[in-house]
Design a protein around this nucleic acid. Structure first.
Lengths: 383, 383
DNA sequence: GTGAAAGCGCTAACAT
DNA sequence: ATGTTAGCGCTTTCAC
């Protein structure tokens, strides 16, 4: 019994019956003086002189169940009325709607904007829409959003950046919500089986540190703010490990893992700024900086400038993500690129396979390689 | 007959029955071995030993219709089962869900990220969620999204940046979708009555140009890319007008209104870069630049740097929007601030009043003043 | 104060 | 090849 599978086509997408992303429905807006409400399937059926089920069949890819002549009449009636199926009604009947949910930590960070755009592209190719929510790294919000999605008929969720534990989502998962984390999967506590898709965070950070090392930097800092996701643990550990592998002993004095201010609402660039201020105020301050992401890196850049330092002459900074404006900053940001397009395609694909029942096996874990993008924010160490 | 009004409370928000944004439902995830599906109202009713209508009443603010003892039993059953009403079913019955739609031109631009966050805040205060969509300034996409929302039971839409004509949305409006444009309202063509909420674009640009003028700049450019929204028309005209008011004749040689490349998918910062390259290559190149928004301004900054010019010594740039990273850039960006919080609060408020039927009058047009934020990207003209 | 019943618009099983 | 019917889970009269 796989109640959903019949709505999915073989390529794992939604049936085009949901007709989103399909061709030009742009001329049929509200013809026939349809002043008040939308047309229903019954009205279409009456106009076409057939039964509602025939309309339904025609619209749901079962066109072969009727004569071409009937199909024509149906399609014309649909067009004439500007009929658009009521997705609540459909969802109520079928148990799901063709929407996948997205929860990101902050829509204000352009990385998550790009994340959403890529997810939307990938989803649209499968006739599926996306509902974007702003979790703000708050477990309660995440849970409420997920709950709300489920009750809207949404059966798949991509979690942008997950807290350490996912157990607050256990109940949702048990009630049928499929989740893929854009992150290392949790510890499978509670028997929670969650798929994951992510960039190779450790590899990425190793590249970043390696780059700085090669440029002769000996004192390399890590600027992150709170370590509240598996991602961040990976990055922090990779930073320490790479240092050690090169005979350098990491020290807390080089790590900025604090909130900017009280309250959890530290904006990333502010965290970078605070981190740079703190780290650069020390004796023997670091000369190389690895930031947890590009927005934080911008903050570090600003902090260094504020201290009268020149980048990249005095200090070097490498970011993580490769958001677009990294190109435009002064200096342009050297960073670690996440292959976002490929990542989101994988995430959507894994998710849809779960939802369709095509994949019922053990959790899938995709990890794609990062890439070092050398621009202008790093230079040779002076000493 | 105002079929929606009964779901709205007097303050114009949704009834808390939709219990979103309300208090801690964070411990009730999936108790009682609820392995497969969510509980239905019928199961709750059975457990409480009452009828479904009583459950419904209890959950929809009609608590006074039953004895305190009954209410207790009901609430306990709800909690024990972790019951969450199915919003599709509710929506199907009532005709709407407590979600407002947002269509923005680009989720990758942090301004629209902030826009979404503010909208979400304002909406959540009214027990209402937000569905965010990426219109990419494509009329077809916008229309499809709006269509899709309507069929999901969404009855209110905030349109981030609207194309010149809104007539592609006429059909939707006629079918009951309430729309507020974050922009000057269209020309009311087709009798389309659309509310609007916006910053005073003309005033804002006048401040920007005025600031440059006061610093002694005589040749002031306007960098925008395509003028495809009412917003942009206003800003362009205000630029020309302010120049004229100061005895300077605007010339096309100072205006960059092109796409970066073929295709409509010019990223804003790229447009700024291309604009700066073009404008700075001229004889008697402009020394002051007004950008259509902050992202474009970053591109201008980059272009000027590329030309070996120093900011603000050689050229001055002012942006529009006041996105957060404007603070962190090098130099920090002088810009025109949009009062986003207030704007979105107004937008949500106007929209909800429309949806509830509290406002059935002529279109409301809110315009809030802009503010000049002086930072480091402008300096005195040399000559 | 509480319950029974109808029905929102759709799909899918089961006739024909 | 097409129609009939029975719900999906909820809210809402209308009875009691």
């Amino acid at each position: 019994m796989r109640p959903l599978s019949n709505k999915f086509n073989k390529s794992g997408g939604f049936d085009s019956s949901e007709n989103f992303g399909s061709s030009g429905s742009s001329e049929n807006s509200g013809k026939l003086g349809s002043s008040g409400k939308s047309a229903t399937i019954l009205e279409v059926a009456r106009l076409a002189g057939v039964s509602p089920s025939t309309i339904s069949n025609a619209l749901n890819g079962k066109k072969n169940r009727m004569s071409g002549e009937t199909l024509d009449r149906v399609m014309r009636a649909v067009r004439d009325l500007g009929y658009e199926p009521n997705r609540m009604a459909r969802g109520l009947k079928t148990g799901f709607v063709s929407i996948i949910g997205l929860i990101v930590p902050s829509v204000e960070n352009p990385f998550w904007g790009a994340f959403a755009r890529c997810a939307e592209h990938a989803a649209m190719a499968r006739n599926c829409q996306v509902m974007l929510c702003n979790g703000e790294r708050d477990i309660d919000r995440e849970q409420r959003y997920a709950e709300s999605m489920l009750s809207l008929g949404i059966r798949g969720l991509i979690l942008g950046s997950s807290p350490l534990s996912m157990k607050h989502l256990g109940g949702l998962a048990r009630r049928g919500l499929k989740i893929v984390a854009f992150d290392r999967a949790g510890s499978d506590e509670d028997g929670l089986k969650i798929d994951s898709v992510r960039v190779d965070n450790r590899g990425g950070v190793a590249m970043a540190v390696g780059h700085l090392l090669r440029l002769g930097h000996k004192r390399i800092a890590f600027v992150a703010g709170p370590i509240n996701s598996a991602n961040r643990i990976d990055r922090l550990e990779a930073y320490r490990q790479t240092l050690r592998a090169h005979g350098i002993t990491p020290t807390p004095a080089w790590e900025w893992l604090e909130m900017t201010s009280a309250g959890s609402k530290g904006e990333d660039s502010k965290i970078g700024l605070a981190g740079a201020r703190h780290l650069l105020a020390q004796q023997d301050a670091p000369t190389g900086f690895v930031a947890i992401n590009d927005m934080t890196a911008f903050g570090v850049l600003a902090g260094a400038r504020e201290a009268g330092l020149h980048i990249p002459r005095d200090v070097s900074v490498v970011g993580f993500d490769d958001i677009h404006i990294g190109n435009m900053s002064n200096p342009p940001l050297t960073t670690i690129r996440q292959p976002l397009d490929a990542l989101m395609q994988a995430a959507v694909s894994v998710l849809l396979d779960r939802m369709s029942g095509a994949n019922t096996g053990a959790p899938t874990h995709v990890s794609l390689p990062a890439e070092l993008i050398v621009r202008g924010s790093c230079g040779r160490a002076k000493e």
